[in-house]
Amino acid sequence: MRYLRWLALPLWVVGLYLALIWVPDVRALGVSYRIFYIHLGMAWTALLAMTANFVLSLLVLVRRKGREETDRFAQASAEAGILMTTATLASGMLWARVAWGAYWTWDPRLTTTAIMWFLYIGYLLLRQAMDDDAKRRVYSAVYALIIFVDVPIVYLSVRWWRSIHPVVFTESGMNITPQMFIAVIVFFFATLVLALDLIYLRAFQEKVHQELQQRRARRLGRLGY
C-alpha cells in the first residue's frame, strides 16, 4: 500500500493532461466545463469514501477483533470523504458561477452534498470531543450508521421540494463522447488512488499517535504521576 502514492502522481498528471488538453471543448459550455472531470471524479470518490466509512463502522460494531484498526480506517475514510466533498463543492460552485451565473443554487445534488458535508463534519467533531477511546469507537460508529441512513432521505426530500418550484436550471445534457469517458475514468481513478493513499496515511498516523500516547501514559505512570 505504501506504493500507492507513486501511482497517484502519474495518474494525476495523465488525468490533468486528458481533462485540460486532450479532450476537445464542448461548444455550448466552452473551456469552463473542463472542471467537470475533476468534479465528477472527486464526487464519486467522496461517495465511495462515505460508503467505506459506513461499512467500517458496521464492522466496528459487529466484530470485536481488530476493532481499533477498523476504527482508525473508519475515521480516515471519513476524513478523506470530507476532503473530497469539500473539493467537489468548491469545484462545483466555481463551475456554477460560470455556467449558471450563481455560486449557489438549491439544486438537489448540491444541497444534499452540503448537508452530507455537515453531517460528516459532525462525525469528526463527535470523535474529537470524546476522551474515552473505547467509547469514541462505538459511539462514533453508531453515529456514522445513523447519518448514512439519513443521506438518501435528505436527497429525496430536496428533490421533491425542488420539483414543486419552477426548475430554473436544467442539467445541461452533456453527451459523453468516448474521449470524454476515458478522461472521466482516468480522473476517477486518480482521485480514488489519492484518497486510498490518504486513508492509509491517516490511519497509520493515528496508530502512531495512539501508540505514543500509550507509551507516554505508561512512562508517566512509572514516574509516579
Binding site: G122, L125, A129, Y139
Partner: peptide, 25 residues
C-alpha cells in the same frame, strides 16, 4: 450520542440540525 462528550451543548446543534433538515423541509 453527544451526552458523553465534552462539548455536549455545542455539539448537539451541529449534528442535530443538519440531520433533521429533511424533516424540516
Amino acid at each position: 450520542l453527544t451526552a458523553q462528550t465534552r462539548l455536549r451543548e455545542l455539539l448537539l446543534p451541529a449534528v442535530l440540525l443538519p440531520f433533521t433538515s429533511p424533516l424540516l423541509l
